[in-house]
Amino acid sequence: MNVARVGIGGPVGSGKTALIERLLMVLKEKNVKPAVITNDLVTDEDAERIKGGGYLEEDKVLAVQAGACPHTVIREDPSLNISAANYLEEKFPDLDLILIESGGDNLASTFSLDLVDWWIFVIDVAGGDDIPRKNGPGVIKSDLLIINKTDLAPYVNVNLKKMIDEAIEVRSGKDVLELNCKTGLGVSEVADKICKNVLFR
């Protein structure tokens, strides 16, 4: 049981599933063999969406239903997600990476390092450029902060440069990346960070 596990958290609608869809395409080119676990409240919505996209064999996508606040199954008691990940590792011995998407949560959500080796927090410009300076633990403690939907900045009066500078400042210099899931701009940088930090390649 030592396949790399990467968490992807962030508010509802920030683009976590969209990032995974994009990542799956890029990871394939990089010859990384992934599986995905999604967390939804009481449905399998995101898992069905990823399966429907045909990015991955269907049985490499599992859904875990949190039943309550999404952070409970990635931090307080991640056992449902851990057993889903263990199941995938046993079933597919050639996996390199398991991506775990948290159900959309608030800025305080963080991943237990018992569940993942490294985790990403996705926010988006449409949520407002004040989000980084609100000092949410997800924004501050994640290993990589992603600011998604950069294409929307002009429509929602967001100063992207300022938003990014403030994010770097509250994170004391830890990684921050811009992303546009609509065009795919920035996805390959995200894949590179995963490769470097947990796959060591």
């Binding site: 030592n2 790399a4 263990n86 080796d117 930090n197 947990v198 060591f200």
Partner: peptide, 20 residues
Amino acid sequence: RRRMRLKSRKGKYYYLTLSR
């Protein structure tokens, strides 16, 4: 963490890939 890059006091780099 089970997976991370480590640096020793002697300045050598290692990779941790511990089992769960």
